[in-house]
Nucleic acid binder design. Sequence first.
DNA 1: CTATTAACAAATAATAATTACAAATTAGGA
DNA 2: TCCTAATTTGTAATTATTATTTGTTAATAG
Lengths: 138, 138
Amino acid sequence: MNNISNIFKEKNLKLTPQRYAIYKFLKSVKTHPSAEMIYAEISKDYPTMSLATVYKTLKTLIELGLVQELNVGEDNFRYDANVAIHPHIVCLNCGKVDDIENANFDNLKTDVLNYTDYDVLSYKLYFYGICSECKKGR
Amino acid sequence: MNNISNIFKEKNLKLTPQRYAIYKFLKSVKTHPSAEMIYAEISKDYPTMSLATVYKTLKTLIELGLVQELNVGEDNFRYDANVAIHPHIVCLNCGKVDDIENANFDNLKTDVLNYTDYDVLSYKLYFYGICSECKKGR
DNA sequence: CTATTAACAAATAATAATTACAAATTAGGA
DNA sequence: TCCTAATTTGTAATTATTATTTGTTAATAG
Ligand SMILES: [Mn+2]
Ligand SMILES: [Mn+2]
Ligand SMILES: [Zn+2]
Ligand SMILES: [Zn+2]
């Protein structure tokens, strides 16, 4: 199986409660939280949680291919437990980061081969605009 | 005219030698340098240049719409004096950031409207891969 | 041409995100 | 249950960036 506990076992890593909580939390939200946001949330259930653990766990989850890092242009990173390549949209007013659902831009990866001599492995696509909530409040 | 000295004049900003040097340097390179890289380069001609001035100048150039910031996923930003929306490609081996020339992905901005209720204002597109130099050395 | 003054550069201090470190704890196999 | 390497934690260190201060410059009125 390819469930998380086997993935950890294969690498001789321990699936600690902290690690599991962070992963489960990331899986459960659509908000693309930062390390700080994750820490704030997880601390409610694990009051002894350390911010350093959040950072270190995120790094190992990324190495395992279970989480990806987003850089939408803030002074910090955001994290996403959906590791598929998929586009995001950032509200320039409230800072929210959303998925763009059902859109498929995978042709980009093959299209771009006509314009570069790089071996292209992946891409990141960020849209910027104003979300519907922020549009209302104008 | 819309040359840089008029743009500065309109906003009651002074086009100092430092500011001009930073802008001219950014215009002249294709490397998408970071603030630190810009500082290292400009320091050769302006030994008294301060890193703080580089950061502050970059910020004003961005506000004036003369420079854009790239967030390719490093722990720092890179800067580009080409303010048109255009895609970039990052070498995962050597860290180089290149333009993808002649490619036009502007349909993205209209395509995405079918999948989101945001007002979409702009986008950033980053490809990741291995550059031709790095491919050789394997 | 000079004086005035607001904008600016430089140096440095401060801040914020992230990482490194060391000591205490724990997961999970023997 | 015991053992031990892996992990967590709290904290210090580091790095990118921003704020502050003070001396310097550029624009312009007189
Ligand atoms: Mn996502
Ligand atoms: Mn560019
Ligand atoms: Zn919003
Ligand atoms: Zn390369």
